[in-house]
Amino acid sequence: MNTITKSKFTETKFYQTLTSLMAKNETMLVISIVVMSIVIGTINNKFFAVETIYETLLATVIWGIVGMGVALVMINGGVDLSCMPIAMFSAYSATKIMLWIAPNAPIIVLFLIGMVIGAGLGLVNALFISIFKIPIFIATLALGVIYKAVMLEFIGNIYITPAEMPQSALDFSRTYVFGGLHVSVLIMLGVILLTFFILRFTVIGRGVYALGGAPESAERIGYNMNRLKFSIYIYAGIMYAIGGVVYVSNSRLADPYDMIGTELTVIAAVVLGGVSLMGGKGSVWGVLLGALLSVIIKNNLILIGVTSDWANFVFGLIFVLAVALQAYNTARSKKQSA
């Protein structure tokens, strides 16, 4: 009867807030990031320089933006493997279209064209997932391959060199604010804030969680399932497209073979960020922190003596540990409440 005679300490408010804070995935991530930073910082004292921090943030941008879409799909209860194909498809096609119709248009046009294409591809995803009830994983895996093939066959398979890139994209890649912070970091923050707002303060955003937690109940209290699912996948498609356009602009190169194949990095960051493997739970800040942590680890592996041959292994190990840790935590909290 240990459960009845609890010690006094466990009943104090301090202990309770402490445990609830510790149970929060975000707290663990912040601690991990701080610890990692201290370790790396002691080896390389440049790590804490403003430039390095800005650089780290810039490297996080793609994973943060695309991660918003992936997180949304995962809260809905599935893994989206079509994220990077959609990102590349949208960015590459948008660049081609813009070069074709208005090569001198401002960067916003490039973004808008990309977003429209991304939304369209998200719509295709939703069509097969929502109407034909194909399991999310199989649908996105297969559609990802199809998007890539369609792009390479019908849109183009030759990369657009920096010399050919739209001027506005080149300008964008050189736009800095606050003494060296790249503007795309602001875009990432904007996208995260927007997603946060939608998830927290809109009825459709709560529907994403409701759908992930109990799909049947969500329908029964009056959510239109098709509308909800289409919204999720179209929004995710737009996120991927933004990520793709930012990537293409920043690298001043639109290579249709690029990006595709890095889906797992995003998924790992999202899982690391604490989005539930079973759907229904997860926060945008967790995803940001997860992306940040994986970038810090990836970018500094060589610094702490890991050769590039080991990079894949370390990434794989982190991925395994992230899923295992989350599953372990879920099991433990379930046991406690039972």
Binding site: W310, N312, F313, F315, G316, F319
Partner: peptide
Amino acid sequence: LATMNLYLGISH
């Protein structure tokens, strides 16, 4: 998906 990466990493 996770172990797929792990095994790739070991091969690397």
